[in-house]
Each structure stands twice: as structure tokens, then as C-alpha cells.
Design a protein around this nucleic acid. Structure first.
Lengths: 161, 161
DNA sequence: TCTGTTTTGTTATGTTATAACATACCTTCC
DNA sequence: GGAAGGTATGTTATAACATAACAAAACAGA
């Protein structure tokens, strides 16, 4: 997983994500209904975390205006099937580029441009489980959200380190 | 840092935390005013994350009823000086047992009893920074919140692993 | 004591999330 | 096809979390 460049063929990202979602839902016997698919598309409109109420507005612009529970239910479904991740530190959601693969949601967030990417480092998972185990704690789920500067924004800021 | 036992001398925790806070504020030339100290004490009433509105109610019970901004300002102060941590995944706050020591807020949360503890593993910090650097990303701040079972709750559940 | 700064009070409102119940829609079995 | 039961969506209301904006008070240093 590379950090998404400022300029890239984003329609390819959306397309790939939707395809992967279809496949994953088929595999799980889960129903990717209209709203759920639309919400997933809207989440993928950028690589930035999107809030539920922003999605609500987007839905309105598509002529499918809805109330909050509709969006939250779609988000719950997408979360439950690993198609999106919740970004707790921003009260937002981002699309998962590789649903199905077990991974715990390690997210990089650029403080400058707001773009997000997944880190997905198994060594990190292991280190956390190990470190927790030393305190007698057994891990079931982890939230890792790392803020900093993405490659593009570092270059712009003249950070060459 | 051990995970706090279900039964322990909690007044000692509160006392130690308040003392450490006083010292840290003196060191920094920051003013630990009445409300700020009281809010800190209330955050320390348990080892569980507390929400701002719960603090508000507690303040009311102490005869110091206040409006939300008062509590949020106190929390902002305590956060700014490292006396508490924000628990993003729970919209809550917990006291920091060792303010002053540089550390990035690695938090263990028991899904059963709700208790929280700090992990504070420097190797974890390093692994994250390293792994992010491989994607060209430079880290400034990290949120790590790990959910699972604490030693006490594991024992109760018969988990001997 | 005056002055500028910091802190707190107060009112209003913005933002995020869910409870509770009604309706529609699919599926399967007769 | 039609009834039954589950799943999904619509709708209304409200809970829970957070901040903007301005007024008043408390404090620190000259």
C-alpha cells in the first residue's frame, strides 16, 4: 500500500473498491443493496475520511435524500463486512482498499492535505499483542491512527529528511 | 505500568495523580486552577474513560454546576499539559498516571469491565515511525487504542491462555 | 491602582449518533 | 399465487458530544 498521490486515476480506485466489495459480499452471502453501494461509492469519492452527515448531503444531491439512520445503517453494514474503516479521531469513515484480508485498521492521516492510507503492518499487530500480553491483556481489536505528513506534503514543505 | 486490578487502593491513585499534576504545572508555569483541579479529580474517579457530560453532572453534584464550555476548557488545558488523554474511540478522557514523560498515548481498554491502562511501549512508537517512513510518511502524533480483555476479566471468563 | 492578559460564565447552536416504531421488500414454503 | 417470517428501509424524535461568540471576573506585573 502506497500513500495515494495527489494526482492519480481515482476512478480506478473507486472501480476496484466496488468490484472488491461485490466479490466480498458474494463470498459472505451479504446483500450489497442500492443504498449500501451508493454510500460505499460516496465514501470512496476521495481518500479522505468522510462524515456521516456529509454522506447524507451527497445522497441528497443524488436525489436520494434520507435521514441519518439510513446512512448510519449503511455504514454499519459496510463496517461489519470490512468494506470501510471508522476513523475515530475524525468521526469519519474511509474505504478499505482490500476487504477480506484480515487486518486491524492501521491508518495514516496527513495533517496537511487530509488524505488517508492504510499501513497494514503485521509486525505492528504482533508488537501490540506481545506488549499487551506482558500486562496480561489479550487483544481483540485495535485502533491505530497516525497523524503526520504524507510524501507529497513533505516535499511541498521542503522536508527532505 | 500494570493493568489496574479490580480492587485496589484507588485513593492512592488519585492522590498520586493530583500530586504529579501539581508538580508538572509548577514545572511548566501553568495554572492548575480550582475547576481544572476538580475536573482532573473527577476524571480520576475511576480508571474508565469519562465523557465530558458525565463530568458536567459530577460537577453539578459537587454544587459547582457549569455549562459545557467550562468542562471542555478544563479538559483542553489538561490535555495540553499531558495530564489526561483523550480516548477517541469512546469520546472520553482518562487520567495520565505519569505526566511529563514523553509518550504517545497507547491505551488498553477492557471490553468487559471498561477499565483502561496505558501501554507505553517505546518499541511500538519506533515500529510505527519506521513502518510509516517506508511509505514516505513522517509521523507527528499517534492514537493507539487497543480493545480486549484485562487480566481480571480473562480470569473470570476462564481464559488461562 | 491601573492595565493588559488569562480565566470563567453564559447563551446559543453546531455536529455526530441512536432509539423506537412504521412500512416495504424479499424469500420460501404451502 | 398467497401467507409467513425475516431483512431492509423510512420516519420522527431525541440523545450525546462539541464549539462559537461575547460578557464578566480574576489575576499578574508595572
Amino acid at each position: 500500500m502506497a500513500f495515494p498521490a495527489a494526482l492519480h486515476d481515482h476512478s480506478a480506485c473507486i472501480h476496484a473498491a466496488l468490484d472488491a466489495a461485490e466479490a466480498e459480499c458474494r463470498r459472505r452471502g451479504a446483500r450489497l443493496t442500492d443504498i449500501r453501494r451508493i454510500v460505499l461509492e460516496l465514501v470512496w469519492e476521495s481518500h479522505r475520511p468522510v462524515g456521516a452527515y456529509a454522506l447524507l448531503e451527497s445522497l441528497g444531491r443524488l436525489g436520494r435524500s434520507a435521514a441519518p439512520p439510513t446512512v448510519y445503517r449503511a455504514l454499519d453494514f459496510l463496517l461489519a463486512h470490512g468494506l470501510i474503516h471508522r476513523v475515530a479521531s475524525r468521526n469519519g469513515f474511509i474505504g478499505c482498499p482490500h476487504p477480506g484480508h484480515a487486518h486491524g485498521g492501521q491508518i495514516l492521516l496527513c495533517a496537511q492535505c487530509g488524505m488517508a492510507a492504510e499501513l497494514d503492518d503485521p509486525a505492528l499487530d504482533r508488537e501490540i499483542a506481545l506488549s499487551a500480553a506482558r500486562l496480561g491483556f489479550s487483544v481483540s481489536h485495535q485502533t491505530i491512527e497516525v497523524e503526520g505528513l504524507c510524501p507529497t506534503c513533505r516535499a511541498q514543505a521542503g522536508d527532505t529528511a
